[in-house]
Each structure stands twice: as C-alpha cells, then as structure tokens.
Design a binder for these strands. Structure first.
Length: 818
RNA sequence: GCCCGAGUGGCGGAAUAGGUAGACGCAAGGGACUUAAAAUCCCUCGGUCGUAAGGCUGUGCCGGUUCGAGUCCGGCCUCGGGCACCA
C-alpha cells in the first residue's frame, strides 16, 4: 500500500479490473432477482455537466448497492442524440450535425468511463443511428394503420425573414433570436399521436405508481386535467350552432357574452364583413404559441357582431373574439360568466359588458350585485335570479341545468381533458425521418416495412433557413409504394421525445436487428429504478408512459407502466440558479476529476445534499470530501499492519464502542433504503472518527478485531459511492477472495446494539430541564417515578401540583404543571 | 397567469411516526508540530444576557391545533421547476 492516496492510480487500476473481468456485462439470470436501474440518458451536448454527474452517480450508487445485496443488476447507458443544438452548432462551426454529435459522444463516453460508472457498455444506444430509429419508424406506421397517428394543422412560430419555423426557445420577447424579426403564428399541416385516447388510462394508472414522488403524480394528474362538464350549443344567427364547454353549468343564467379563439371558424366568418375583427385576428397572429406567454398577456378581444341566443332564457348575448381563449382546448369557445369567473370579470369590466350575479354564498342575505362589485365570486352557494332554478344549491343546479339542456337537445354531458394530442412533426433536419410518402395520385402513403429504415443523410451542410432535406433530391424523390409513380418523402422529422420514449425497452434487446423488442423485455421490464431531473416530471415521463402502453397494445411489452420507481433529482445550482449551458454558469466536472479524482467528485456530490433537493455548488467543500478520503486511506494503512484474529471476546471498554459502531451501521443501512446518501456519508465519517481514536489506543487483540470489523463496514458502505478507493483498500486489507463489488452487504449484530441504560431528557412544561439515566427495562410508570425523584427536576417543579406526565420511552419525559 | 416544490447557524445540510433543533462537513478564529510554509492534529463556533453556574431566545412571516410544532392546519412573502418546438 502506498503511503499516500493517489486517486489517479487507484482509479485507473480499479477501472482496468472492471473492464478486464467484464464486471458489469449482464445477462438474464433466473437464479437471482433482477434489478433494472436506469438513469435518463444525456443529450450529447459536448461535455458532461454537473447535473449529469449527479444523475449518474445516483444511478451508479443504487446499482452497486443493489448488486452488493445480491441482485442481478442491469445498468445501461446511451445517447439522446437527435436535437436542435447539433443544428445550431453546425451553422456556427460549419460541421455537419452528425459529425458534431458523434465527436461529442466519443468525448462524453470517455468522461463517463473516467467516473467509474458500472454500465453494461455492450448495450450502448445512440438514437441517431438507423438501427435504432428504424423501429420507431416501424412502430409509427403501425400506429398510422391503427388510426393512432393522424395529420392536422397546428400553429408554429414562423420567422418571415429567415423563412423558417422556430422553437419556443428560439423566440426571444416575440422576436427571432437570430434576426430579431417579430415572429408570427402560422398554421401548418403536422403529424399527431392520439395520446388523448389514453388520457383516462394514463390518469387512472397514476394511482398504481406508489414508487413515484407524490409531486410528480400530482403534476401529471393536473396536466392531464380531467374535468366533467357539459357541452352547450348556442344558436348564433347567420352562423349556426356554436358549441362551448363548461364545468360550471350552474352559472348558465349568468352568461352575458360568449368568447371564441381568434382562429375559431366563427371569428374567421365574422372577419369577412368586419374590418375590426380582421384587424384583431391579424394582431393575434403575432401572439406566440407558448402557453405561458398567452396566459400572461393582456386580455383583449373584439365584438364579432354575431349574436347568440341564450338556450334557456332566449336572450341575445354578444359573441366576442378573445386572445385568452385557446383553440386547442375544449371547443375553442367559452361561455362567459363575469360574476363568477375572474378572467371573465376582468374582460367584462374592460369592455363594459354586464355582470349578472346568479350565485351567492348559502348564508348571504345582501344584494347579490354588491357581492360582485370589485371581483367575481367563484365559490359555491345557492342560485339567485335563475328563474326555475332559483334557490337550489350550485351543486344541485349543475345536475338540474344539465338535465334541462339535455332534455331540450341543447347540451350534452362531456368529459374533457386538458391534455392535447401530441404533435410530433418537427420542421428540422437532425431528427428521425417520418416514414411517410406524399404521392400526387394516392395521397399520404406509409413507407412499407421492407423499405425501412428511411435513412437520414448525414453528409449534410446546414444553411440558415429551412430543412436541408428539401434540397436533397436523393432523399426527397422516391416512388409511391402504391402506384409506383413519382412521389416525395415527408421531410419533417420526429420530435426527439419520440426516441426517449422507448429507449428503456430497447436496452433489453439492443442487438436484435430483426425486431424492435423481444422476449428479453419480459425479464427486465419494468425499470425498477428510474432516475432523472425533476424538469422531466411531465413531458418526458408522460410520453414514455404513453409509449409503453402503445408498445403493450402492439404485444411488444407486457407491463402497463415502464418505471416502477422514480427518483427525481434536484437541480445543480450555481449562484442560486440552474446550472445549464444556456445560462453559461456551468462548472466543468472534468477539472474536478483532474484535480481530485472521480471518487472525490462522486463523494462530494452525494454528501452535499439529499438526492431530491437542489444542490448549491461550492468549490471549497470539495476539498473536504477529498480530505476525508485521505483520512480513510491513512486509517486503512494502520489497520493493514495489524494481525488478523478472527474471533475472541471484546474488551470491556470496546463493548460500548462496538454499540456505537453498530448503531452507525444500522443508521447507514436504513439510510440506503430511503436513498439518504448524504447521511450515509455522514455516518461513515463518524465511523472513521471513532476508528481513528481507537487506532490511537494501545494495541490489543480486541482493538485489532474492532478496527477490522469497523473498517470493513465503512468500506462496504462507501463502495457504491466511492468504488475505486474501496476496491483498492478491500483488496489491500485482505477481506476475502471476491472484489468488493460482490462483497456481502454488512449486517448489524443486534446483540451489539443492546444497552442496559438509556439517557432520557426530562422536560418541565415543555422545556428541557434535566437528563437522567434510566434502565432500558423500566416501564413508563417507573420512568415517571424516576424523573419525579430527580433533584434537578424537583427544583423546577417547586412543589407545584403536577397535572400530567407524558413519557416517550427511550426519548423524553414531559412533566406538565398546573 | 396556471400547476408543482422549497425556505433551519457565516455556508451545505441533520432531526426516520408530532418528542433534546443544529448530527456530519465547509468556512472562520485560537492553539500544537515546524527554521518556515504546506500537510496533519487539538480546541471554540446560532443570537443574546451573565465572571460563572445558568437564563432567555431561535427553523421565511402572521395566526391556529397540541402537554409538546422545523414537522400538522389556515393565510401570506420570497425563491426555484414546468407550461406542450430546449432536452
């Protein structure tokens, strides 16, 4: 053993050992329980960032821990390789996106290896490879035949100067990020997946995910947004029936206007004769597509001149076009009840529309109009001014008014979801081609299985505007599979969320070039532990759940859900904000690895915060982590020189020490179970502190045995976190023939935990006043008597009458005085 | 705007089922060793009053429940994540 801890050498040797012995290559093993541990794969942006290091260290710690508890662990890694940054880099540097991406992958793979992650590299996937995306194309044609993939128009951000579609990220304050031109909305034809067909199941199955954080489940539930209500049809003169969806039919009698989206057919019809409506629609064309922008902008609208007939009263109500009505939700039209909805209220005040209260709180006796002078009343209550419905509760009214509408054929009960169908077309080059052919004779024709994959040409030069695929005749021109006539390929590519929605399954059958998946998915799926950033709580995780159900319905997987347990790691922050390349506040992990080694990087990041919390970066605290590893090394050097004696009795003063050591082991083992790795490290530090003191004592057989036992706990507890140094020290201390990756997980000696007496706190009126030693065998009454005899306690009682005594055995006694 | 979180010493954090607030570490201050420095080791370390023993106070703010609240409930404030074309 070297005198000093040389991380670079230790880590090189350990990694060489794992590589030589193929330690992390796994196959299906019927004799051991399987554990599939998956970290969200990275986008190959160039270099690893701290978020990656945190994510992958967490996954590696869990994987290595499960392996030590006897499980057959699959931990794969791959690359979410398609995406926008590659195109941006290509334009900037004149390098083809493919070349840039593959170079990045090569660099980042080496970084991951240098960090010592226990991946089965034989299963590595890159989503930009045809052997991967061909199966996605294949599945898509299946979905098309099932009617689950369809074409429809949808708005995109359009830069009229660059003649190109912009991502939301490329729109800055309503302008193009490159040329500063105001961005417009443009409706174009795109491909969609019918995720709404699965809305109910995606919602219901959330209840079957006990291993998911409650907040993620809640966010998904709200995102899917199931609401029960009624579709009401208003007759509009010179137009026809206008359908609106509402969850508050009880407020129907308070409707004073209707509002439709600017793109609604009624608004389009009205603009033919009314220039002000036309002007309003033109203005709305400058609105961005992002919902956050839509929802925060000033609420404006225009009277379309159309008049609707109230279905129950027959009164005329105006129809407005308004910028806050979303065409994509419900019917693209709403009934407005300003007295009972905040947004409708603000709009009515602005455009001087009537505000008619129809609901008041149950015990309200004042003037209903007084209730809604300053703001809407959105609560429940009883109906007023509602004709035959006056006097009943709002809950009852929802039923009664809906019944009345249904009887008259003016309304229908409906369940609506906030969730919209998934638009998967991207007008970009660096993505998987959508396997469709546009034939002038036959229309849209899917590419037949035998012609898959539709390979994306990689030798491409990026220009500023539009997809370069349109300029590639060798890609664009093809023949129609149906009529054999000349036809063109679809040049849109898939949303990159498509690739990341099924990669977890492909790892099980990576080498199969005959099928998307095979029987091996039955062995490995579902993923037992998925780990990734909280920023993926909704989109990625919802799409992956959806895809799993699509795969199930194709007979390709048998589980209903892809991820049994989910760990959402917090952000890595610098200066209180997310560390990200777009913000330019990253700390390069490579510098850290070069200076201190992979183990120090891993240790610091596990110790600095619990997994789910955000982690504030601190360069100085890293040195402390490294210092601890040096102390561990020095301790091991003392112990390696000691004689090994297997059994014997414990010297009397060592018994209490051993109780402490097993107590800390017990704590650390529990903390592993609940993924509190920061406190696992804290317990290990405490153990090392104890062992260091013990090492300073005079030599004895009992001391040597306790030191070896203690250090064997520390090494095994730390092995998943700092695997290299533990690999080295485990071998140096000669703890057995197996490497520490397969060493048995430590077990607490329950006998060592037993104590005769325990210290308990005594409170008087809730304030800590004394501490007493109590025999463990004492019952509550004896403890109480003991406390009431204590001199220090009596001083605070001062002879006052005791009204009650609370005893929490092993913890405290609270004496309550009258 | 809507949905979801988080706020504890100078800093990161601990407190497992409502029971001793501040484990473990960082920074800082003091000391030992050293010709010196680095490294290492030892001590102190929420605020406040007190020579001390000890007292009071303290987990973003206001209120509530309880013998007892960092933890539960109601109302705020601030910060962070997501909002469907960043991944």
């Amino acid at each position: 053993m070297d005198e000093h801890y040389l991380a670079a050498e230790v880590e090189r040797d350990a990694q060489a050992f794992w590589e030589r012995t193929l330690s992390f290559q796994v196959t299906e093993d019927p004799h051991r329980p399987k554990f599939y541990c998956l970290s969200m794969f990275p986008y190959p942006s160039g270099r690893l960032h701290m978020g990656h290091v945190r994510n992958y260290t967490l996954g590696d710690v869990i994987s290595r821990w499960r392996r030590m508890t006897g499980m057959n662990v699959l931990q794969p890694m791959g690359w979410d390789a398609f995406g926008l940054p590659a195109e941006n880099a290509a334009i900037q540097n004149g390098v083809p996106p493919a070349r840039w991406t593959y170079d990045n992958i090569d660099y980042m793979r080496e970084q991951l290896k240098r960090l010592g992650f226990a991946y089965d590299w034989s299963r590595e996937i890159a989503t930009c490879r045809p052997e991967y995306y061909r199966w996605e194309q294949w599945l898509f044609t299946r979905l098309y035949h099932k009617g689950l993939a369809y074409r429809a128009t949808a708005p995109v951000n359009w830069c009229p100067h660059d003649q190109t579609v912009l991502a939301n990220e490329q729109v800055v304050d309503g302008r193009c990020w490159r040329c500063d031109t105001p961005v417009e909305r443009r409706e174009i034809s795109q491909w969609f997946l019918r995720i709404t067909d699965y809305a109910e199941e995606l919602l219901v199955d959330l209840a079957r995910l006990p291993g998911w954080p409650e907040r993620v489940v809640t966010m998904q539930r709200n995102w899917i947004g199931r609401s029960e209500g009624v579709e009401i049809r208003f007759a509009v003169a010179h137009y026809g029936a206008l359908s609106v969806f509402t969850t508050r039919p009880d407020t129907l009698m308070g409707v004073t206007y209707l509002a439709v989206a600017a793109e609604h057919p009624l608004a389009v019809a009205a603009s033919a004769t009314r220039p002000d409506v036309m002007r309003f629609r033109d203005e709305c064309r400058l609105n961005q597509t992002a919902e956050a922008v839509m929802e925060t902008m000033e609420k404006r609208g225009v009277d379309t001149g159309m008049r609707a007939t109230h279905p129950l009263t027959g009164a005329d109500v105006p129809v407005y076009a308004a910028n806050f009505v979303l065409m994509s939700y419900g019917e693209g039209a709403v009934m407005a009840v300003p007295a009972h909805d905040e947004r409708d209220f603000a709009f009515a005040v602005r455009y001087e529309l009537p505000i008619v209260p129809v609901i008041v709180p149950m015990d309200y006796s004042g003037d209903p109009c007084a209730l809604v002078i300053a703001q809407a009343y959105t609560g429940e209550g009883r109906l007023v001014g509602s004709g035959p419905f006056t006097g009943i509760s709002s809950a009852q009214a929802r039923t009664d008014i809906t019944d009345a509408l249904e009887r008259e054929g003016l309304g229908t009960r409906r369940v609506h979801f906030r969730l919209r169908d998934w638009g998967i077309s991207r007008q970009r080059y660096w993505g998987a081609p959508i396997p469709m052919i546009h034939c002038p004779q036959c229309g849209v024709v899917p590419v037949p299985d035998e012609d898959l994959p539709v390979v994306l040409p990689e030798d491409i030069v990026m220009t500023q505007s539009g997809s370069p695929l349109k300029a590639r005749p060798d890609f664009l021109n093809t023949t129609c599979p149906k009529c054999a006539g000349p036809a063109e390929r679809e040049t849109d590519t898939f949303d990159t969320f498509m690739e990341s929605s099924w990669y977890y399954a492909r790892y099980c059958a990576k080498d199969n070039d005959q099928a998307m998946l095979d029987e091996r998915v039955r062995h490995w799926l579902p993923v037992d532990q998925y780990i990734g950033g909280i920023e993926h709580a909704i989109l990625h995780l919802l799409y992956a759940r959806f895809f799993n159900k699509l795969l199930r319905d194709e007979g390709l997987v048998v589980t209903d859900e892809p991820f049994a347990r989910l760990l959402t790691q917090g952000m890595v922050l610098k200066d209180g904000t997310k560390m990200s390349k777009s913000k330019g506040n990253t700390v390069d992990p490579q510098a850290l690895i070069n200076q201190y080694g992979a183990d120090t990087a891993r240790l610091f990041i596990m110790f600095a915060a619990p997994p789910e919390q955000s982690l504030e970066w601190n360069d100085e605290a890293v040195a402390g982590a490294h210092r601890f590893l040096k102390r561990l090394w020095a301790l091991a050097r003392v112990i390696v020189a000691l004689p090994v004696s297997e059994a014997g009795s414990w010297a009397e003063p060592h018994k209490a020490l051993r109780t402490q050591i097993h107590g800390l082991l017990d704590q650390a083992l529990r903390d592993y179970e609940r993924y509190h790795f920061n406190t696992v490290v804290a317990s290990c530090m405490s153990l090392v502190n104890i062992l260091q003191k013990l090492a300073d004592e005079p030599a004895s057989a009992s001391r040597a045995r306790l030191l070896r036992e203690g250090v064997s706990f520390v090494l095994r507890l730390l092995a998943p976190i700092v695997p290299h140094i533990c690999h080295k020290l485990w071998a140096a201390l000669d703890f057995g023939d197996t490497a520490i990756i397969d060493a048995p997980w430590p077990v607490v000696d329950q006998a060592a935990l037993c104590q005769d007496t325990v210290r308990m706190v005594v409170q008087v009126n809730g304030k800590r006043r004394a501490e007493i030693a109590v025999a463990v065998a004492c019952d509550a009454a004896e403890i109480e008597a003991h406390a009431l005899r204590d001199e220090a306690v009596l001083k605070y009682i001062e002879g006052k009458p005791v009204s009650k005594v609370f005893v929490v055995p092993g913890r405290l006694i609270n004496i309550v005085l009258r």
